[in-house]
Design a protein around this nucleic acid. Structure first.
Lengths: 199, 199
DNA sequence: TGCCTTGCTTGATATGGGTCAAATCCTGGT
DNA sequence: ACCAGGATTTGACCCATATCAAGCAAGGCA
């Protein structure tokens, strides 16, 4: 959709669909640095070039504003800057949680963490708070998961197979996941401090 | 100084000295998620508990405000929220750069990146823009560097030795670094995007 | 002076995850 | 139904980094 360095004279808000923010090294290694979900904000007031690649992983609908008028609106409406500040601080928290994952977790913990996050978000969207036994679809390919977690797609595949073999999750099809025991999955994720914040 | 989960009824700005923000897993693995330098902001309006451990690595002087009055001040002075938003967005960019480092760079690249960052910051503080051949002190122990980079302290030590052996840097004492060729160091860091030109 | 501690280096070995390669599964197009 | 191309799984092997362990240097202190 958008490449890092492109001119970007608008800001936007995601209405529906999913997109990713990625950074790459010149030899092709890539790392996902953000996941854009409905209600997330894209772009930055006061900057005219994109800092990251933005890729839609599904059909996506965004609500765009030209940057200049938006900046003027922000000057006139203090409430907006405050709201944006809250959202940005939440993103910063999420980024820091993610840094812990990238720097210190094992491959298995990384996968379990990702599944926990997706499961929680999915549960909160459809509020089906039925305690144990959750069910959801993965919105990402194995390769996207690898970019998210700082792994290779082969390792992702292997660890998912391992979690399945150990009964932590069940799979129907490639993408549909059943979690018989959410507690167990959270244990596997390593941070049972329950502290996963979702954006 | 402050432990994650502690009550924190103030916000602050660093005046002088250096502190770190770290997260830990319950088995003791720790990951640095932020570096607090002079002028950086600590704490979050609208949250009353610290989310991270804050550790001073030098003597430090901070300018503290009680949280409630500060929040009121922010409501009355839109300019402050905007300034804070800019700072937070900068931190978010830094966090994302860091995620790329943690997820995709090799140990050698991580060390070179860290040295580049410290060198650049140091150079900008003392503006000694003498082209090549920079010189600076590392403000961190090997262990702190390891926590920063998602490595072990032994690997940090080995990679620094390797860079020295290869002539990328020179050491006098354990902490004082001389960079004979900054270009070379930036190459080693992997992201030579110093201006975004490719031949 | 000699002991202790803290920070750092270096070596030997183990292992988690990467790399390369091949087989299988799935989906949409003709 | 058949085929083509992408997505996924699985296997074999290798290497970068972790782990475990020993030793060194410098400073503080009894």
């Amino acid at each position: 959709m958008i490449w890092s360095g492109d001119k970007m004279d608008f800001v936007a808000s995601v209405v529906s669909g999913i997109a990713t923010l990625t950074q790459t090294l010149e030899d092709g290694r890539t790392q996902m640095v953000g996941l854009l979900l409905p209600s997330d904000f894209v772009g930055r007031p006061g900057r005219d070039r994109a800092a990251y690649n933005i890729t839609a992983t599904t059909d996506i609908l965004m609500c765009c504003f030209r940057r200049k008028p938006f900046e003027e609106l922000m000057d006139r409406t203090p409430h907006i800057a405050q709201r944006l500040l809250q959202m940005t601080l939440d993103e910063l928290d999420a980024a820091r949680e993610w840094m812990l994952l990238l720097g210190r977790k094992t491959a298995r913990e990384k996968i379990a963490s990702l599944l926990s996050i997706v499961a929680r978000r999915d549960a909160s969207i459809r509020h089906r708070g039925n305690g144990n036994s959750l069910t959801f679809d993965l919105p990402l390919t194995r390769e996207a998961m690898a970019d998210y977690l700082g792994l290779t797609l082969e390792t992702v595949s292997r660890q998912i197979s391992a979690l399945k073999r150990d009964g932590v999750i069940e799979l129907t099809g490639k993408r549909h996941v059943i979690v018989p025991d959410m507690e167990r999955l959270l244990m596997e994720a390593g941070d049972d401090s329950d502290g996963g914040l979702l954006t």
